[in-house]
């Protein structure tokens, strides 16, 4: 089912288009951009690409434990539910700009939601 969603959204080309828009929204948002202040933009963009691929139901190897480990340093800096919601909202707005169907956007939001506990280290 996930693979079907990934293809419906447009596969890897759609991920590439979405990363550019999504990462710009996040970097421009003072409520969350402190968590993305890595000076190496290429490395950051690669991380965003991996995240979007997963959120679109595409091929990925993330486990809950990876999510926990990968965000622990951000949780220590105050990452909370509000930040999580803002990121998901930016992702939904990105997909709307790319004319993705609302039903697919809901599915993406559901995949994000399934990672909330691990991302926030609960």
């Amino acid at each position: 089912m996930s693979q079907a969603l990934f293809e419906k959204i447009g596969g890897e080309p759609a991920v590439n288009a979405a990363v550019d828009i999504f990462y710009r929204k996040v970097l421009a948002d003072d409520r969350v951009n402190g968590f993305f202040d890595d000076v190496d933009m290429d490395r950051q963009a690669a991380k965003q690409k991996a995240f979007l691929t997963m959120a679109f139901g595409g091929p990925n190897h993330y486990t809950g434990a990876d999510m926990r480990r990968g965000h622990a340093h951000l949780v220590a800096r105050g990452l909370n539910d509000r930040h999580f919601d803002i990121i998901v909202e930016h992702l939904a707005a990105t997909l709307r700009e790319l004319n993705v169907a609302e039903a697919s956007i809901d599915q993406v939001a559901a995949i994000c939601e399934s990672t909330r506990k691990d991302v926030l280290g609960r």
Partner: peptide, 16 residues
């Protein structure tokens, strides 16, 4: 270069 990259990207330039 670092700061210009970020600002031009925020102004709409694509990473690629």
């Amino acid at each position: 270069v670092q700061s210009a990259r970020k600002r031009l990207y925020l102004a709409g330039a694509s990473l690629k």
